[in-house]
């Protein structure tokens, strides 16, 4: 993105926010989209060379897909809690090195139309965008008519899928435990989408979390272990419905998750 100064970046994001709310923006992202009228589109994206903009009422960001860095402005609907809790998580990642996250490298507060916002610059841990589990699956297999693999994957392909699944599980369990500790310590709620598999990316060094820095910590504090089992049952269902794995193979993956959680 051919922007140099921080002020220019902030001004660019503010312009996109104004566009999102404008008649032209709403026409493009909402009115021209024949959506279910009970659920109007809450966001839109604009693809440009080297990345894309994400536009919504409460957050506007630019994601550089060449190096995995991003900038964004976000409405502070939860005060400083989100930032403070994430920075504690970021510090734990730095010290314990049991999981990796994108890092907030700069943050400053803004006032937009009389409301508190923040501007943040975020760096991926290794300067790579990587790919998440879903995009990895879609890039690795061709589904007949977009539905399922026509021939059973080879043993090597299945092993790659299950190994990656297990590494995701290890990562999610590690980070979830730390998040729960931070919530208890700060007497706050849990972050939205903390178990969002598309937010976990793999780069050349391993897995990393790419969305927690923008989460609002407003979800009820519930034991993470139950949610993780549900999450991986759903994910394993995707693997069986697309015929990548047999049911018993997928069940073994869920057993792996259950066993790992019991060991915590």
């Amino acid at each position: 993105m051919a922007l140099i100064s921080r002020d220019s970046k902030i001004a660019d994001l503010k312009t996109k926010l104004t566009y999102w709310h404008s008649a032209d923006g709403q026409k493009k992202f909402v009115n021209e989209v024949r959506y279910n009228k009970n659920f109007p589109p809450a966001f839109g994206t604009m693809v440009i060379s080297g990345g894309y903009y994400y536009l919504s009422d409460q957050m506007v960001g630019f994601y550089d897909t060449t190096v995995g860095h991003s900038i964004r402005i976000k409405k502070l609907v939860n005060g400083d809690i989100d930032y403070n809790c994430f920075m504690q998580l970021q510090e734990i990642a730095n010290v314990k090195k049991t999981f990796r996250t994108s890092r907030i490298t700069h943050r400053q507060k803004l006032v937009i139309d009389g409301q508190d916002w923040e501007y943040a610059e975020i760096a991926s841990p290794n300067g790579e965008y990587g790919e998440n589990y879903l995009t990895w699956i879609l890039n690795s297999f061709n589904f007949k008519n977009g539905l399922y693999v026509e021939t059973a994957p080879s043993t090597e392909e299945k092993t790659a899928v299950t190994d990656k699944f297990k590494r995701y599980a290890d990562e999610i369990i590690a980070v979830s435990k730390e998040i729960e500790n931070i919530c208890v310590k700060n007497n706050t709620q849990m972050p939205q989408h903390m178990l969002n598999l598309p937010s976990i990316y793999s780069d050349s060094l391993g897995m990393y979390w790419a969305g927690l820095e923008q989460s609002n910590w407003i979800m009820p504090l519930t034991p993470y272990k139950n949610r993780i089992v549900d999450l991986f049952e759903n994910t394993s269902l995707f693997l069986t419905k697309t015929r990548i794995l047999q049911k018993e193979e997928a069940a073994e993956l869920v057993d792996y998750v259950t066993t790992a959680l019991e060991a915590e």
Binding site: L134, L138, N142, F143, N145, G146, L147, Y148, H193, L195, N196, L197, P198, R227, D230, L231, N234, T235, L237, F238, K241, T242
Partner: peptide
């Protein structure tokens, strides 16, 4: 339906999976 940059059909939601936010 999702088509890749070579216009190949990659995914059809009629497979009826739970591709929700916590996928």
């Amino acid at each position: 339906k999702l088509f890749d940059q070579n216009n190949i059909l990659k995914f059809d939601s009629k497979i009826d999976i739970n591709l929700s936010q916590d996928f």
